[in-house]
C-alpha cells in the first residue's frame, strides 16, 4: 500500500516536471519538445542534487519498463495510413537502409578512432570486455 502511494507521488513529480517543460517551451517559443525539456530539467535537478534520485527512481523504472506500451496505441494510427507504406515501400527501404548503415558505421568508427587516439596517450582502461 505504502509503496503505491510512493509511486503515485513520484509519478506526480515526473508529471509536474513534464508540464513545466511544455510550459517553458511554449513560453519561449522553442522548437524542441516539452518532454525533452522536462528530461533535461530532471537531469539537471538530479546532477545538482536538488532532487535526490530516490524521489523519482521507482516511478521512473516502472514507466521505462512499460515504455513500449505507450507506443502501441499511437502505432495503431497506421490503420489509417498503411497505404503510404505500400505506395512508397521501395524508396523507404532504400532510404532507411542507407541511413541506418551510415549512422551506425560513422558513430562506431568516429568514437573508436577518437578513443584509440586517446588510448595512445594514457593506454589501458577501455579494451578489456570483448
Amino acid at each position: 500500500m505504502k509503496s503505491w502511494f510512493m509511486i503515485i507521488g513520484q509519478l506526480f513529480i515526473l508529471w509536474i516536471i513534464n508540464t513545466i517543460g511544455f510550459y517553458i517551451v511554449e513560453t519561449l517559443n522553442l522548437t524542441i519538445p516539452g518532454n525533452v525539456m522536462g528530461l533535461m530539467i530532471l537531469f539537471l535537478l538530479l546532477v545538482t542534487g536538488i532532487i535526490p534520485i530516490r524521489w523519482v527512481e521507482e516511478a521512473a523504472n516502472l514507466l521505462i519498463k512499460h515504455l513500449a506500451f505507450f507506443f502501441i496505441p499511437i502505432a495503431v494510427g497506421l490503420m489509417a495510413l498503411g497505404t503510404v507504406f505500400l505506395k512508397n515501400g521501395i524508396p523507404l527501404i532504400i532510404i532507411m537502409g542507407i541511413s541506418i548503415v551510415l549512422g551506425i558505421y560513422l558513430t562506431g568508427f568516429v568514437s573508436q578512432f577518437v578513443a584509440q587516439k586517446k588510448e595512445g596517450v594514457k593506454s589501458e582502461n577501455n579494451n578489456h570486455s570483448i
Partner: peptide, 17 residues
C-alpha cells in the same frame, strides 16, 4: 492510454543520470 507518455519521457533522465 498515452497520458503518461510525457512523464515517461522525463523519466529517461534517470538512466542518463
Amino acid at each position: 492510454m498515452t497520458y503518461l507518455l510525457g512523464p515517461a519521457t522525463v523519466a529517461l533522465a534517470v538512466p542518463l543520470y
